[in-house]
Write a protein that binds this DNA or RNA. Sequence first.
DNA 1: CATATCTCAGTAGGACTGAGATTG
DNA 2: CCAATCTCAGTCGTACTGAGATAT
Lengths: 145, 145
Amino acid sequence: VDVDNAPDRLRGMPSWLFGQLSIKARRTTDEVMDGHGLHRSQYGLLASLAQFGPSSQTELGARSGLDRSDVVRWVDELAARGLVVRDRDPDDRRRNVISLSASGRRLLVRLDAELAAAQERLLAPLTAREREQLIRLLRRALGSG
Amino acid sequence: VDVDNAPDRLRGMPSWLFGQLSIKARRTTDEVMDGHGLHRSQYGLLASLAQFGPSSQTELGARSGLDRSDVVRWVDELAARGLVVRDRDPDDRRRNVISLSASGRRLLVRLDAELAAAQERLLAPLTAREREQLIRLLRRALGSG
DNA sequence: CATATCTCAGTAGGACTGAGATTG
DNA sequence: CCAATCTCAGTCGTACTGAGATAT
């Protein structure tokens, strides 16, 4: 889209801007993740495990904004590639305990760098100061207290 | 999602924030549009016609961020409901000329009010000043010069 | 019995593509 | 002959639902 040619009603409408930006953002990050044969959502799973340690799939979904059903799918794939390990929780055998493997942790570090570069491309028109401001506002809008 | 429980890597990643916010935004605006039996995208078409006058479908798509193929679909429906009129362009008979009808213009005014209220719900955590700041940053990020 | 977790099959809607018809 | 516009059929990926299996 060329936002300069969009009608004022859309150019000033947050919901429309979010939609257009999420399309652009998805394209940018998919370039990176495709290069590793991974899905965007899987980065969120690895990130969650790295920060909070071994977790159930419900926890993973809640933290990274994924549906329970999609968590199953993406964890399946991560486990098949040895990036995470899936075990039954001995204390509550309804649950799985998903843990990051050493190679998962190594991959995460590489993804961090590549995704950071992708974010810079995505926000190229903004200064460093504006990017921080934007992130703060987005986070508050999403409901951070 | 509860952004406060999300891993820091996601909480600070614009592409993830855009994705989550676009989901929330879609839900908010769909409530309004569903009430009129319309689709989100159709508001963009009406808005474009109101501001720029009668247009070809290619123009409409470029201005409101819709694919040519989806423009066909949504204009079909708007025309069937008498909210726009579709004519062949006499100066270039490959083109259609889409124009806003009187009832389309009246509907647009009602949608404006309801969607403005929806935007306020969407950005409830932010002050008026922050909302303006956010809109400015989003627009620049999308590529406005 | 009621609830929680995981899994699987499937749905509805979204962004996008390819190809054909028509016109310039 | 090539390019632009519109249309249609269809593809692939997304957010989400319902229901079943297992366990608390």
